[in-house]
């Protein structure tokens, strides 16, 4: 029986939500196509994640343990994934698409001489192939692609599927990993954390994003206040990360992060297609914009036509009342 192996990246002691989305979809595909579903955790302390992986349907969870993985370097991760894919004998390998996996996917595919479909919006298994839809041409259209090979890799955009539980009894399978010291030539000097609410943008349930309509620090502060009140994260369009008003880490869009919160506030964002590509999987979208013809209103669940500098202070007060109640 062919096998689908799902890689579950971890951060801050949790499996990434986008990884559980991919695992949930892979479980559906496995049952439809008669495949075995297995999961893979690569971490300095992977065994703590086995229970969660089993809750989402992975009976076998391969674990690779090494303190090296804390360092965000691509060479050890590529080695670990290559070896895990070979050892498990997986035919299909799925991973959430995020900066850390974009970093390794191409090299991993070349080392395995595998077929590979990056950053897909949806995928299905057809015989020995993966067929997927990916946004291309600045996210204006979807390209339908098919990849085959002894192994086929796929990375999936955040929010493409819902994470759903289907508990099984899980067991860990520890894989041995001997990092090849000679091939690890890069060295991590430091990680520069950017200031913000401290909530991970790609995991946040609420995202408050600013665009060109946010003119100054006072405007940004209002967005930060609203995000903090709702335990959310602050995002931004490319225009205002480029201008330096918002940190580069906050950039949402085809060239930045893809987010899919329950509630997305687009504040002073016109709604260029490149930005929309990064947030259109959000469940509820609220747009605040002065221009009644702004494209963002085509995507918004609720659109408010008006001046954000007048609306935001009142909105913040109303949210405060609810939180206090």
């Amino acid at each position: 029986m062919s096998k689908i192996l799902v890689y579950l990246p971890t951060a801050d002691g949790k499996i990434k939500r986008s990884a559980l989305e991919v695992l949930s979809h892979a479980r559906v595909l496995a049952s439809k196509n008669g495949l075995t579903l297995e999961a893979l955790v690569v971490d300095e302390n992977p065994s703590v994640f086995v229970e969660t992986a089993a809750k989402y349907g992975a009976a076998t969870v391969h674990t690779v343990q090494n303190p090296l993985f804390k360092q965000h370097l691509n060479a050890p991760l590529i080695q670990a994934l290559e070896s895990a894919i070979k050892t498990s004998g997986a035919k299909f390998f799925a991973t959430p698409s995020m900066e850390a996996t974009k970093d390794i996917l191409g090299a991993l595919a070349a080392k395995l001489n595998a077929g590979v479909l990056p950053d897909v919006a949806s995928f299905d298994i057809e015989g020995d192939a993966i067929v997927a839809l990916r946004p291309v041409m600045a996210a204006k259209v979807l390209q339908k692609v098919k990849s085959t090979g002894n192994v086929v890799l796929v990375s999936v955009r955040s929010g493409s599927y819902d994470a759903s539980e289907a508990p099984v009894s899980g067991s860990a399978n520890t894989l041995t990993f001997e990092p090849d010291a000679n091939s690890i030539k890069a060295f991590l000097r430091e990680i520069l954390k950017t200031a913000g609410t401290g909530v991970d943008l790609s995991e946040a349930n609420v995202v408050v994003s600013g665009g060109r309509g946010v003119k100054d620090e006072d405007g940004r502060k209002m967005l930060e206040d609203l995000a903090a009140l709702m335990n959310g994260a602050v995002g931004a369009s490319r225009a205002v990360t480029e201008s330096g008003l918002f940190p580069a880490t906050a950039q949402i869009g085809q060239t930045g992060k893809v987010v899919s919160p329950d509630l997305y506030f687009a504040v002073g964002i016109s709604g260029a297609i490149q930005h929309v590509a990064g947030m259109s999987n959000s469940k509820v979208i609220v747009a605040i914009n002065k221009d009644p013809d702004a494209p963002i209103f085509q995507y918004a669940t609720y659109g408010l036509v008006g001046d954000l500098y007048k609306i935001m202070p009142i909105l913040i007060e109303e949210i405060k009342k609810i939180k206090a109640a």
């Binding site: 979807l142 086929v152 979208i285 609720y302 008006g306 009142i314």
Partner: peptide
């Protein structure tokens, strides 16, 4: 190993509601 099968349009989101008025009313 990879071939392009074709292209299609993006799925459309359900059209939402757009409100106009003064700030207090809108909120």
């Amino acid at each position: 190993k990879t071939q392009v099968l074709g292209f299609q349009s993006l799925p459309q989101r359900e059209p939402g509601k757009k409100f106009e008025g003064d700030a207090t009313e809108l909120v």
